[in-house]
Amino acid sequence: MTPLWDASRAAEIIAQYLPLEGPMLPILHALQEEFGYINDDSIRLVAQTLNVSRAEVYGVVSFYHDFRQAPHGRHVLKICRAEACQSMGSEANASKLLQSLGLDWGGTTPDGRLTVESVYCLGLCACAPSAMLDHDLHARLDEQGLKALAGEAV
């Protein structure tokens, strides 16, 4: 379980990265890693600490696909939709999976178990199709393999 927002914990995390040049992205990654997403409080705190405006931090958070401003499911399945995976039928596999879960891209199962997102290339293009469940990579995922993978995440 990701811990709830905690200002002092967040401040601690931010402080770790302050010695870096251009610490914004490392800080945002670390906050998201800790709390699962980047809430408005995080944005305010980062702005205050880095002495930038909260508009700027929001601009950064909202720009990158990796950063989320709302919590996602307990597990995240990122399915590659780039060309190499498409050449091996990834789109059909993915739409069948989404259909069976009753989700759209980016959706989360009602029980909060799984969020399915798209990703554009995991660098496993010679062993397509591929996907990443949380931090683990998977390649040569046929329809069954993908379904099984999605089922693994409990």
Binding site: G22, P23, M24, L25, L28, H29, L50, E56, G59, V60, F63, Y64, H65, D66, F67, V119, Y120
Partner: peptide, 19 residues
Amino acid sequence: AGAYVCGEETALLDSLEGK
């Protein structure tokens, strides 16, 4: 952080700078 355009060198630099 998941932005393809950051492979473009100047966008990459902005990203490194935290923008």
